[in-house]
């Protein structure tokens, strides 16, 4: 009598296929944290690309975002503070068939790991780096980071930040990365697309993923709860594709999002493979 229809797979089920939820949950993140949204975007991007789990290595350094690899069912390497990209370099050259993804934070990637970051950009080695950029050190309790805006507060900048922030995307472009994009935790569809494109790019990719840390950044700067902070991104971005046509005053204080840079240039492990082949001919 009853007809059974197969329920369409819910998006959340896609995510669950890739989680080590039974073994590793509960996770360490505060409720409302943007990292969970980025985790979801990463998984959907990988699912969309149809990459086998065995062919994916996810690495991270130290910090809130760097806890991410523990929760996903791939080859995962949770390394030391700032050094994930250097570890990833070894993984990639040893097994070039692996899709190597690094999850990092603004302190991890741009302060302690800044040197490894720019040199991996320079080598254009095929590593996709997702920078969870929440403008503060979360794990250690709210200290200002290399991307904390000028005058904003943190526990080690109680009177306001005297330093000027890095623009991670510009840094990556100048250092030689072949794919640089920016998304936010509000624009999840776009973020997923940008991550997928970054993984597909044959070279070093940076996805600067703007995220919220209401627990520390929000509290120190009176920017409110997670919903308010995530919604803030909605009104503070300008699509890079149309930015050129906009008057400067409309771009003031806003983030450019979308693909910021893309170029074709020789990739490091392929260069190395070519060298080996040439030497063999001799």
């Amino acid at each position: 009598m009853a007809t059974t229809t197969k329920k369409p797979e819910q998006p959340s089920n896609v995510v669950h296929k890739y989680l080590r939820a039974k073994k590793t949950f509960p996770h360490v993140w505060c409720s409302g944290c943007g990292i969970g949204i980025i985790l979801g975007a990463l998984i959907r991007a990988i699912d969309r690309l149809g990459l086998p789990k065995d062919d994916i290595a996810v690495l991270s350094g130290i910090g809130c975002s760097s806890r991410l690899p523990v929760y996903v069912d791939f080859n995962t390497l949770h390394t030391t503070h700032g050094r994930a990209i250097a570890f990833a370099t070894g993984v990639k050259v040893a097994k070039p068939k692996l899709n190597v993804i690094v999850i990092t934070g603004d302190g991890d990637c741009l302060a302690i790991g800044g040197n490894h970051f720019i040199h991996a950009c320079r080598r254009n080695i095929n590593i996709t780096t997702i920078l969870v950029n929440n403008h503060i050190y979360g794990m250690t309790g709210g200290q200002f980071s290399p991307t904390t805006p000028y005058t904003k507060r943190g526990s080690t900048a109680p009177y306001g930040n005297l330093e000027h922030p890095f623009d991670a995307a510009k840094l990556a472009i100048a250092a030689g990365a072949s794919y640089v994009a920016r998304g936010t935790v509000y624009h999840v569809g776009q973020l997923t697309r940008l991550i997928a494109d970054g993984i597909s790019n044959n070279g070093f990719s940076l996805i600067d993923a703007l995220s919220n840390c209401h627990t520390y950044y929000g509290r120190w700067n009176k920017e409110g709860d997670p919903v308010k902070m995530i919604e803030w991104f909605k009104s503070h971005v300008v699509p890079a594709a149309t930015a050129d046509k906009m008057p400067p005053e409309k771009k003031e204080g806003k983030w450019l999002t979308g693909v910021l840079h893309q170029e074709d240039k020789p990739e490091y492990t392929e260069n190395y493979a070519r060298l080996r082949a040439e030497l063999k001919k001799k």
């Binding site: 290595a57 690495l59 390497l77 390394t79 030391t80 050094r83 250097a86 570890f87 990833a88 370099t89 070894g90 993984v91 990639k92 050259v93 040893a94 097994k95 692996l98 490894h116």
Partner: peptide, 10 residues
């Protein structure tokens, strides 16, 4: 770091 990365990759 790279050495350890290569090592865990076999």
């Amino acid at each position: 770091a790279a050495v350890i990365g290569a090592s865990v990759a076999g």
